[in-house]
């Protein structure tokens, strides 16, 4: 039997993703520093990606190799994009 996430956990994750989305859309109104703004938005991308990978995709209950591979994607890609923007 494969362990499954509870509906409560999925609901919490969904609400958290909605909140993070609204924050990332309007965070520019609160932050003037360009680098801080870019990395704040990209950090939110990582947080959202982690929720989708661990909760919706259920990879927190999968072999660590696959979880780390996808978490690596939502960590490295925003970092690369961030450095391209600030360099």
């Amino acid at each position: 039997m494969h362990p499954i996430n509870s509906n409560k956990k999925n609901t919490f994750s969904w609400l958290w993703l909605m909140v993070l989305t609204v924050i990332s859309t309007f965070i520019g109104l609160a932050i003037d520093n360009k680098a801080l703004f870019i990395f704040s938005v990209l950090f939110i991308v990582f947080l959202k990606g982690q929720q989708i990978i661990d909760i919706f995709m259920e990879l927190s209950q999968a072999p660590q190799f696959w979880r780390r591979l996808l978490l690596g994607y939502v960590t490295l890609l925003p970092l690369i994009i961030g450095f391209i923007y600030i360099l």
Binding site: N10, T25, I52
Partner: peptide, 24 residues
């Protein structure tokens, strides 16, 4: 419109996660 699309895709994914739970 980009914000609306983000919220709709997240919500759609949420319902797919609930659907998978029901199937389990």
């Amino acid at each position: 419109s980009g914000l609306i699309n983000t919220l709709t895709l997240i919500t759609s994914s949420f319902f797919v996660a609930l659907a998978l739970n029901a199937m389990h």
